[in-house]
Write a protein that binds this DNA or RNA. Sequence first.
RNA 1: UUAGAUUGGUGGAUGAUCGCUUUUUAUUUUUUAUUAAAUAGAGAGAGGAAAGUCCGAACACCACGCUGUUUCCAGCAUUAAUGGAGAAAAUAGUUGCUAACGGCAAUCCUUGCAGGGGUGACUUUGCAAGAGGACAAGUGCAACAGAAAAUAUUCCUUUCCGCUUUGGCGGGAUAAGGGUGAAAUUCUAAGAUAAUUAGCUUAGACGCUCUGUUUCAAAAAAACAGAGAAGGGGUAAACUCUAUUCGGUGCAAAACCAAAUUAGGUAGGUUGCUAGAGCUAUUUAGUGAUAAAUAGCCAAGAUAGAUGAUCAUCUUAAACAGAAUUCGGCUUACAGCCAAUCUAACAUU
RNA 2: GCCCUCGUAGUUCAACGGAUAGAAUAUGUGCUUGCGGAGCAUAGGAUCCAGGUUCGAUUCCUGGCGAGGGUA
Length: 117
Amino acid sequence: MLAKEFRIKFKKDFDNILKSRNKFFSNNFSLRFSQNNQDVSKFSIVVSAKISKKAVIRNQLRRRIFEILRLEMSNIKPGYSVMIFPKLGALLLDYQTLEQEIFYLLNKSRLLKNETR
RNA sequence: UUAGAUUGGUGGAUGAUCGCUUUUUAUUUUUUAUUAAAUAGAGAGAGGAAAGUCCGAACACCACGCUGUUUCCAGCAUUAAUGGAGAAAAUAGUUGCUAACGGCAAUCCUUGCAGGGGUGACUUUGCAAGAGGACAAGUGCAACAGAAAAUAUUCCUUUCCGCUUUGGCGGGAUAAGGGUGAAAUUCUAAGAUAAUUAGCUUAGACGCUCUGUUUCAAAAAAACAGAGAAGGGGUAAACUCUAUUCGGUGCAAAACCAAAUUAGGUAGGUUGCUAGAGCUAUUUAGUGAUAAAUAGCCAAGAUAGAUGAUCAUCUUAAACAGAAUUCGGCUUACAGCCAAUCUAACAUU
RNA sequence: GCCCUCGUAGUUCAACGGAUAGAAUAUGUGCUUGCGGAGCAUAGGAUCCAGGUUCGAUUCCUGGCGAGGGUA
């Protein structure tokens, strides 16, 4: 789990992200972000009830993604607010492939400091 | 011993690396302020159902002059004040427990299953289930079949009289038997009748209502006795009647502080927010639910939402599954293990 | 979090508590046509699940499951 300062807190921030046009997609995720004028990047993960009706499964998926982001934190550019939406297929993935997809998405949206093309 | 059913309990462990929320200690920096921040250490961190949101309460606010009972009509006017009527909804054997409940306990009754007794109707014991007031106040409903399904009344059989072309026809009597259906008018005796006989008359039994006595922890039921009324099929998860209960909104309630921007009280923040109808143990009272006393204990509190991720080992990704104001229930989901009871099979004595 | 509504053929809808659950459309087969379409005939196909009340339940009651909507 990420610490409080790296999580998006206010409704205003969510609205800003949803208004912005920065959208990127992979097979099992979609990602949206906008710039904020702060020193750190902030994250939020939204798991819809459509993905699973059970709260345990949704929580597990959310925690795994947060864990991946935490380990990548030093490599991410500061000053952005990012939302990640898993799709239905993300339930079937194991931890390794989740990690690869998240890394691919961040790279594609140019949020990483060391870009690899 | 094995298998199954029911009830109760439990609801992965250990280690490594990296984290999150919260409480607290130390050090450093900082502030008008023990204010705020950083680093390090220590402690705590989902459930038996946290779920469904099906009931009940606590608590908060809103509406209401007061009492009765937070509906209505009258009543009362702060040393005050009781009569009548009743919409919608909910509940329903009886007694008790509880803050309260549609929950729980005990018990009665009914139904089902099993064993014993009996030719049999039935009776008795055990277990299980039951939304279990009233159809003897009124109204409605009952396909098909059947004569007839409720102000109705002979299809067949039986029997008497008349007629007869001996095939039957007409008019009575008859509820003993048959047949239909899920269901067919409570039972008995006497009279009326040529005779037998549901309807008519009289008397009684069963059942109903009320009263008394016995039994019982208590009440109901039951048994016995007395009185009364009426004429008695089913159905109220049909209308309805009887008795009882009942204001509305839900912690995103609500209170406080408070930018941009004077106000309003918006953004945002703090409180509400975890010491409680609390948990554990013992004793006492009670058939029991439960209550009382004594002793000990403090056990998540997040806020777009912490309680985790990866790896290894054990015995297998352990089953169902994630607190959101808080409790009491109900319902639904649930692998493995442990205990008790019951059932079946096998083995031994 | 709280509140409300609805589940019937593949689809859109019917059906007083009475039993063969109906209609349109779609699907299959046949007829028609040189072939196809249209048309005609015919066949199969459903009450979300589990209990209960009742002689009898799509209908009444209870509990699940699923779908949709509202509100802050």
